[in-house]
Amino acid sequence: MDVREHDLPGVGKKFAVTTNDGDRLTIIIHNSGHREIYFFERGEDYPAYAVRMEDSEARKLGAILGGAFFQPVMAESMDVVFSQLSVEWMKTGSSSPLIGKSLLEARVRERTGASVIAILRSGKAIPNPHPEERIAADDTLMVVGDREQVGRFGDLLRGPGRDG
């Protein structure tokens, strides 16, 4: 990215920015604190879009762009995460020993290492269920963990001596 800085006497500073993809922006920071951002279409001399921001808005936008609110995971890191992560949808059979128990009472996380992150019940989703949420017959549970943890949860859901 190419950034060129220019003094604007009596106004503030101007930054002419060209991204690696060739997009052009001009940012003017006024002595009063407000900012103006201009976006130029390729090959055009006049801006296609302009945004005016107060100082506090510009600082918040800067924090967002700088990653203060969200840090994306790099692709290499995601490959490692997905190779170790297992997400399964498991249906509660009518004879499951977990029916009628809350997630807390069933000690799902403690016993298996897996987490129930959503429940589908009667066509409705219960995302991030509370530990007191009771498991019902015909629930579909979204379970996350590594493969072994999810496998242990499946065993727990089916009960001893049952194969699915």
Score class of each variant (00 low, 15 high):
18 T>W: 02
19 T>V: 03
19 T>I: 06
20 N>G: 08
21 D>C: 00
21 D>A: 15
23 D>M: 11
25 L>F: 15
25 L>K: 05
27 I>Y: 09
28 I>K: 07
29 I>H: 08
30 H>F: 14
30 H>G: 02
31 N>K: 14
32 S>R: 07
32 S>H: 02
33 G>S: 05
33 G>C: 04
33 G>A: 04
34 H>D: 05
36 E>G: 12
36 E>P: 00
36 E>C: 06
37 I>N: 03
41 E>G: 08
43 G>V: 06
44 E>M: 12
44 E>K: 15
45 D>Y: 14
45 D>M: 11
46 Y>T: 15
47 P>W: 15
48 A>F: 08
48 A>W: 06
48 A>V: 00
49 Y>M: 12
51 V>F: 10
52 R>N: 09
52 R>G: 09
53 M>Q: 09
53 M>T: 08
54 E>R: 14
57 E>K: 12
58 A>S: 11
59 R>N: 00
59 R>H: 02
60 K>I: 15
60 K>A: 15
61 L>Y: 13
62 G>L: 09
62 G>R: 11
63 A>G: 13
63 A>T: 09
64 I>Y: 15
65 L>H: 07
65 L>Y: 09
66 G>W: 14
66 G>D: 10
67 G>T: 08
68 A>G: 02
69 F>S: 14
69 F>G: 08
69 F>V: 15
70 F>M: 07
72 P>L: 11
74 M>C: 01
75 A>H: 08
76 E>D: 13
76 E>V: 11
77 S>R: 09
77 S>Q: 13
78 M>T: 09
78 M>R: 12
79 D>E: 10
82 F>P: 00
83 S>P: 01
83 S>D: 11
84 Q>F: 07
84 Q>D: 06
85 L>F: 07
87 V>N: 01
88 E>F: 03
88 E>K: 14
90 M>I: 10
90 M>D: 01
91 K>N: 04
91 K>S: 10
94 S>N: 09
94 S>D: 09
99 I>A: 09
100 G>R: 06
101 K>M: 14
101 K>H: 07
101 K>S: 08
101 K>C: 00
102 S>I: 03
102 S>M: 04
103 L>V: 02
104 L>N: 05
105 E>P: 00
105 E>V: 10
105 E>I: 01
105 E>G: 02
107 R>L: 12
107 R>P: 00
108 V>Q: 07
112 T>P: 03
112 T>V: 11
113 G>N: 14
113 G>A: 15
114 A>H: 07
114 A>I: 05
115 S>E: 04
116 V>C: 10
116 V>G: 10
